[in-house]
Simulated assay, not measured.
Amino acid sequence: MRNSPTSRPWRAVLGALGTLFFLGVASASPQLSCQVTYAGTTQTVLARPVADPYPVPSVDIGGRFWFKAVMVGDADHINRILLYAYQDAKPHPVLVHQAKYLPPYPRSSPPWAITGQQHVYAGPLERELIYSCTLEGLTP
């Protein structure tokens, strides 16, 4: 009776529920989502919790800027959020904007607009980089 055809559908249902539970837990980990715009083009830069912020790469934004978003911590606790904008210059990129956000962070189901809309200007022509970031996955 243990392996009868009537018991198989229940195993399939339980397996599917286990998979959904696992996916729900995995998707509940914190994520920072930044919408970064330069010259009318918007890119999404995502950040997940890391223990070491230094290896997190910067993202090229339109060949004029570099943007780096870092969340230091783990799935249970975010220690700090760091955002950097660099002007692409020779011989190396130049830091033009840095922001740090510290806990406590609100725990809510909808994403929390952590930065508002930020405008950064750099270079001899004062080129404009616009970004806004939301924090999600910190469940109440």
Rank of each mutant, 00 (worst) to 15 (best):
R11M: 14
P49K: 01
Y84N: 05
S27M: 12
G15F: 05
H119E: 08
S7G: 02
D52Y: 05
K68I: 10
W10E: 11
A85Y: 00
K100F: 07
V72L: 03
L14W: 09
R8Q: 15
V96Q: 01
F21S: 10
I78L: 09
A85W: 01
N79Q: 14
V96W: 01
T44D: 06
Y86I: 07
P111T: 03
D88Q: 12
P124T: 12
Q87D: 11
I78N: 10
R2Y: 14
A28I: 03
V13K: 10
L23N: 05
I61E: 00
E128Q: 13
Y131M: 05
Y121M: 07
R2A: 14
R127Q: 09
I81C: 02
S132Q: 15
P53F: 06
P104S: 01
P53V: 04
R107C: 07
D60R: 03
R48I: 09
L23Q: 08
A39P: 10
L95I: 06
G63S: 02
A89P: 04
Q35T: 07
A69Q: 00
D74L: 03
P111Q: 05
L23M: 13
S27Y: 08
I81H: 02
Y105M: 05
T19I: 11
W112E: 13
T37Q: 11
G73I: 02
G123A: 04
P110L: 05
A28S: 12
Y54M: 13
E126R: 15
Q31E: 14
G123S: 04
P53T: 02
G24W: 05
T6W: 15
Q117R: 12
Y105V: 03
A89Q: 14
K90F: 14
P91S: 02
D60A: 10
S109Y: 14
W10N: 12
L82H: 08
G123Q: 02
A75F: 08
P49E: 00
V94C: 09
A16C: 12
T139G: 09
Q118Y: 02
A39C: 06
A47E: 04
L125Q: 15
Y131T: 00
H92L: 14
T6V: 11
P91R: 05
T37G: 05
G123P: 05
A28R: 06
H77L: 14
L95S: 10
L82V: 11
Y38A: 01
S4E: 10
L125C: 09
K68L: 12
V13I: 14
P55M: 02
W10F: 15
V13Y: 08
S29L: 07
L83K: 00
Q117W: 08
L23K: 06
Y121L: 13
H97F: 12
P55V: 06
R2P: 05
W66N: 07
V94A: 12
G137M: 01
Y101T: 10
V50L: 00
M71K: 04
G18A: 14
L14V: 14
R107G: 09
N3W: 15
I81Y: 03
P104K: 08
Q35D: 10
T19A: 15
R48M: 09
W66D: 07
Q31W: 11
C133N: 03
H77E: 11
E128V: 03
M1P: 13
S7Q: 13
L138W: 01
R48K: 11
K90L: 14
V45A: 04
N3Y: 15
P9D: 09
R2C: 08
V70E: 01
R80D: 10
A16D: 01
V45Q: 08
Q43A: 06
P9Y: 08
P111N: 06
G137H: 02
V25E: 10
A51Y: 11
F22E: 07
